[in-house]
């Protein structure tokens, strides 16, 4: 007796209404691929590219934020439509609370918090971002923080570029980074 979509949704709704879900997640189809989006009661806590593997991503969430992980299109509706709209260029900014608990090092969390101040259309170098986060000279460590960003796109690690030029590396691959920067007008196609 295969569970119907309706039954699964009712189960998820009941779990959420009873306050039993620590994290909810769902997928969203975008021009840069099918993304997994997860959120806790504090905000969006994970955005994952398809290459990352759903099982691994969810296991990591369960381990660090709690095992009560529930799939729900409804509960993640707002953040998913913001991300989708952003990537379709119908939404200019993603104004949504962020939960950075999956980033456990305080320095790296500081880097990402600083990064949220870099606005659409702008870019910053790794060295500049390191300085803003209070550690001038820690460009490499800043690069690591960006590479481990649990919420790409929402926390714009794609706006961090090498001082030597070029787009540099990206967790979702340099091609996606280029597309995001073009979309934001920081780079001409």
């Amino acid at each position: 007796m295969i569970p119907t979509t309706e039954w699964l949704e009712q189960l998820a709704d009941a779990a959420i209404d009873q306050g039993l879900a620590e994290v909810t997640y769902a997928h969203v189809d975008t021009p840069i691929g099918r993304l997994l989006v997860a959120e806790s009661d504090r905000g969006v806590c994970r955005v994952a590219f398809p290459e990352e593997g759903v099982d691994e991503v969810l296991q990591e969430i369960a381990q660090h934020l709690g095992p009560r992980v529930v799939r729900s299109d409804r509960a993640t509706g707002r953040i998913r439509s913001l991300i989708e709209g952003y990537l379709l260029s119908t939404t200019k900014i993603i104004d949504y609370p962020v939960d950075l608990r999956l980033m456990r090092s305080p320095f790296r969390r500081g880097v990402l918090k600083e990064l949220t101040k870099v606005t659409r259309g702008a870019v910053v170098t790794y060295g500049q971002l390191a300085a803003r986060a209070g550690r001038p000279g820690a460009a490499r460590a800043t690069g690591t923080a960006c590479a481990l960003n649990p919420v790409p796109i929402v926390v714009p690690c794609h706006r961090v570029v090498p001082s030597a030029g070029g787009v540099g590396s990206y967790g979702g691959g340099p091609e996606r980074k280029r597309l995001l920067l073009e979309l934001e007008g920081a780079l001409t196609p």
Binding site: Q63, P67, V69, R71
Partner: peptide
């Protein structure tokens, strides 16, 4: 570490529903 809960729903939802149906028929869901 425990698997994310929804993994259990996906893995066992089907057989749990089947089993519930044998126990309570129409109220299985």
């Amino acid at each position: 570490s425990l698997p994310p809960f929804w993994r259990l729903v996906e893995l066992h939802g089907d057989e749990i529903l089947t089993y519930a149906r044998r126990l309570v028929r129409d109220d299985a869901e």
